[in-house]
């Protein structure tokens, strides 16, 4: 168990090291999401009520679309240098490769959220810095990274991968986006944990199911 965790951490840490040098993924995700937020801020007549109504939807739609851009890039790096095959040569089970790559993507999305959330709070003039928001963000980032890693691996060898990934990813994460939007809506309206518990439970269940399913399917995707 400790060995497996060390391998997962090694792969995640390697992705983080490469990202610190290239800044490909975080800049793409955070930059894209910030642009969407700014465009919506100027295009909507944001009264406090409208901000509370549309803000959560704009935030998570922006993060979901931006996430696709970053996930595409994160896996393309492994294929361009054929390094995915180098990972496959190692005497580790394939699901550890999945979990390591998903950990890397989780870290990227989390860093991007750290950049995006304060800007969202300022532009929409909403209070989002609450523990509930931390829980929502983490659950959503886990779900995005597990589903995204699987579909990025599936689409990376396809010629039209930039089109394929959003087509696969966005329909599947729709329940997670709904849970994130509804929970964030409760947060910006100052409601308590109990009001949003069903949405948080939905997000947690989604994460558990997709981590297990994705880890299983990923091994078969790697073989041929």
């Amino acid at each position: 168990m400790r060995d497996s965790l060390a391998v997962i951490w090694s792969i995640g840490r390697k992705d983080l090291l490469l990202e610190l040098r290239n800044k490909d993924v975080v800049v793409a995700v955070a930059g894209f999401a910030l642009l969407v937020l700014v465009i919506f801020t100027f295009s909507l007549n944001l009264t406090p009520d409208i901000a509370k109504l549309v803000g959560p939807g704009v935030l998570w739609a922006a993060v979901a679309f931006a996430g696709v851009t970053g996930l595409n890039r994160a896996f393309a790096l492994e294929v361009e240098g054929n390094t995915l095959e180098a990972l496959m040569l190692a005497p580790i089970s394939r699901d550890l490769i999945f979990l390591g790559k998903a950990l890397g993507n989780f870290l990227f999305i989390t860093v991007a959220l750290v950049v995006v959330l304060p800007v969202f709070a300022v532009l929409f003039n909403l209070v989002v810095f609450r523990w509930e928001m931390l829980a929502i963000s983490l659950l959503t980032a886990i779900g995005f990274s597990s589903v995204g890693t699987l579909f990025a691996a599936m689409s990376v060898r396809v010629r039209a991968r930039e089109v394929m990934l959003p087509l696969l990813f966005l329909p599947v994460v729709t329940p997670l986006i709904m849970a994130a939007v509804e929970s964030t809506s409760h947060v910006v309206n100052g409601r308590s944990w109990s009001d949003m518990s069903q949405w948080l439970q939905l997000a947690a269940a989604f994460d558990v199911v997709f981590i297990v399913v994705s880890a299983f399917v990923f091994q078969h995707i790697l073989e041929d």
Binding site: K14, L17, L18, G81, T83, A86
Partner: peptide, 23 residues
């Protein structure tokens, strides 16, 4: 055929990374 290395890491970093995968 291909060296299968991370181009933005040094040779030592590549070897350290793969050594960790081989435990």
């Amino acid at each position: 055929h291909s060296p299968m290395l991370y181009a933005d890491m040094t040779g030592r970093e590549n070897l350290m990374f793969f050594a960790s995968l081989y435990r």
